[in-house]
Computed example of a mutant assay.
Amino acid sequence: MMNNITDDGEAGVDVSAPVVSRHSVTVTASADAVWRILTDIDAWTTWLPEIPYARLETPGPLAPGSVFRWSAAGMEIESTIVQARPQERLVWRGYGDGPNGVLGVHVWALTPAGDGVEVSTEESFAGPPVDADPAQFQGGLDATLARWLDRLKRTAEAATAS
């Protein structure tokens, strides 16, 4: 589970986890604009109102091993960057509410698409709380990722228009 390396050498979600969600959207903005929004973790609260706080703990640009702390869905989360390829791919993993809580692995992928970028996101959830009620976690994760993509699209397109 630690690495989740796919056949093509990419870090990815845990496809054997009880909960896996995948969503995508086309954003009429540059990959650079989308990347800046995604990787400015300290500013997540400005476009993701359900996140009360988010703070990068490791100084400098995001890189494998960078740590950030945040809160979502009532969980305190510590995440570590697994892969960061600017304007292309961002992967992190972390525990919500500690090692006996929810283990999430999240992937963001940006692919050129016409006059914008296709933004795909996927996340896996595992751990004792997920095992106890996978249907609730699946529904919550599906709704959250769809909302995040919609907000990312609106934020990036508004920034590009101004």
Rank of each mutant, 00 (worst) to 15 (best):
L38I: 04
V130Y: 07
T39G: 09
D14A: 12
A159R: 12
N3F: 14
D131S: 11
E57C: 00
S24Q: 10
D8Y: 02
Y53A: 09
L90T: 02
I5W: 07
T144Y: 12
A73V: 11
R89N: 01
T144E: 13
H23F: 10
E57T: 07
E118N: 07
A159F: 02
S79K: 07
R147V: 11
R36Y: 01
P99S: 06
E10Y: 13
E122P: 01
G12C: 11
L56S: 06
T121Y: 01
P18M: 05
L38M: 14
R93Y: 04
W35P: 07
Q138T: 07
V82W: 06
G94A: 00
P128V: 05
S162I: 06
P64D: 08
D142M: 03
I81W: 08
A158G: 03
P86H: 09
G139R: 13
N100Q: 13
V67T: 08
P61L: 00
A72N: 14
S16K: 11
D133F: 09
Q138Y: 03
W70N: 01
T144C: 09
T26G: 02
M1F: 09
V119I: 03
P49W: 07
Y95A: 05
R154K: 11
Q87G: 02
D8R: 12
I51S: 15
E157T: 03
Y95G: 03
L90Y: 06
R85C: 04
L152D: 02
L145W: 15
S66Y: 04
E78T: 02
P86Y: 09
V107W: 11
Y53Q: 10
W35Q: 05
S30R: 03
A29Y: 13
G9L: 00
W108I: 10
V19K: 04
G127L: 10
D133T: 01
V107D: 10
A126I: 01
W47I: 01
D131W: 07
I37W: 15
Q83P: 00
T121P: 02
T46E: 15
A17R: 12
A132H: 06
V105K: 13
G101C: 04
E76R: 11
V34W: 01
W148R: 15
G74T: 04
N3E: 15
G65D: 09
T58P: 08
L141H: 02
D14N: 14
E118M: 10
K153Q: 11
S79E: 04
L48G: 00
I77E: 02
A63T: 15
E123H: 04
G12H: 14
W35C: 00
T144R: 14
P59E: 00
E78R: 01
D40N: 13
V119P: 05
G127M: 04
G9E: 02
G12P: 12
W92F: 13
D40A: 10
T45C: 15
G116W: 07
T26S: 07
A73G: 13
T111W: 08
T121R: 03
G94P: 01
T39K: 09
D7W: 14
E157H: 12
G74M: 08
Y53N: 11
G96V: 05
P59D: 02
R55W: 07
A109Q: 15
G60Y: 12
E157D: 04
A161H: 00
P64T: 00
D97Q: 06
S79P: 11
R147T: 15
V119K: 06
